[in-house]
Design a protein around this nucleic acid. Structure first.
Lengths: 199, 199
DNA sequence: ACGATCGTCTACCAATTGGTAGAGAGATGA
DNA sequence: TCATCTCTCTACCAATTGGTAGACGATCGT
């Protein structure tokens, strides 16, 4: 049996650092220091920094997929309520751990190889979302539009608000408990209005 | 008279590189190479990398402020039309040069000093937007909500969609001329629906 | 009891980083 | 003409980067 605790601590620390500061800006030495170990131990568990990045991406993608998938499965029938449920499900991990979405965003700056791999991992989720939006638009239960672009826009809104503390600070928002609740509710209202069928 | 061409080319190249790949990931050597000059020439025009970053931020902020300000000034009275105008104004430079908004986003990873400075530069614009949203909500011409958070959400949507090519690629979007037009129109419809008063 | 394996370490290494010192070419003004 | 100023350069430098080689103690199966 392999002792996974060091390995997992490296993954966890790396996710937070990569997601908040960017992959290139974080050195193996810094990761090792945060974990409480030497750089060579990091390189023992992960053959290279690229390998580490790749595995961290896998972890982040898996976490997101699980959260969203569970929300999609357990949610009610009405599409607007369902989107509410997704927002509630994604919002907590996203805002409490911006590194998660930040890391996904980070992909676009990486070489195309890991980016392509991550995209493949998320693709089925994206496809399902697009098909779902298209069907609900067709049924008149969502505002009509290009379901692919609407999906991207909804994602951009959620990701953007969760990963841009500067924008929130600029409008005087603070990350208190009540602030978080207010932000979540405002986000829900925003997306609901954006997606509701035009009366 | 100072010959500004080298200096300005350094600024331009730096903006693109910093905005697309991140400040930490771009070396002075790389900037110099792209400009067609030696690193020491870069350090002649800018005392340090921090200095360069700071000036690049100033350039980016100034460009954005000019574009948005002009759109705000010249736009029609109805708030939804006005938002349309802003989208049209910001969309072109934002999507054709993602580095612009990407750089603004990059601020949150930097030390607080330049971040604070940039925030100060944009603050008046933000304040004006919030006051404007509040007034129009009060007048019933926009959906009611917390104007500060609504401003942040609108910004997040626009910035997010412009700086996340991965999300767009994931839904099969392509950056052709017609694709750009479709995206812009979908974004306008999305924001319009999100902000319109609830019937 | 003992060799093998596992996990972490120290000791290096070449390449790259941001930055300094100062030479030298070319224009300018007295 | 000559001193000065502007701009770019070559030559370095110390610190940090990702990565290799291999020693050392602990644990484990036999």
């Amino acid at each position: 049996m392999v002792d996974r605790s060091t390995r997992e601590r490296i993954l966890e620390v790396s996710l937070d650092l990569f997601g908040t500061r960017g992959v290139d800006a974080v050195s193996l030495d810094e990761i090792a220091r945060d974990v409480g170990v030497r750089k060579q131990t990091v390189l023992y568990w992960f053959a290279s920094k690229d390998d580490l990045v790749d595995e961290v991406l896998a972890v982040a993608a898996a976490e997101l997929v699980i959260v969203i998938d569970a929300a999609l499965r357990a949610a009610p029938d009405d599409p607007l309520d369902r989107i509410d449920a997704i927002v509630r499900a994604v919002f907590r991990p996203a805002v409490r751990r911006p590194a998660l979405l930040g890391l996904i965003r980070e992909v676009s700056r990486l070489d195309s190889v890991p980016a392509e791999r991550l995209r493949a991992r998320m693709q089925s989720l994206v496809d399902r979302a697009v098909v779902y939006l298209a069907a609900e638009m067709e049924a008149g239960r969502l505002r009509r539009g290009d379901p692919r672009l609407v999906a991207a826009l909804g994602y951009a809104t959620l990701t953007g608000i969760a990963t841009e503390p500067e924008a929130l600070r600029a409008v005087g928002w603070q990350a208190t408990a009540s602030g978080l609740r207010a932000l979540r509710d405002e986000l829900r209202a925003f997306l609901r209005a954006a997606l509701a069928p035009t009366g």
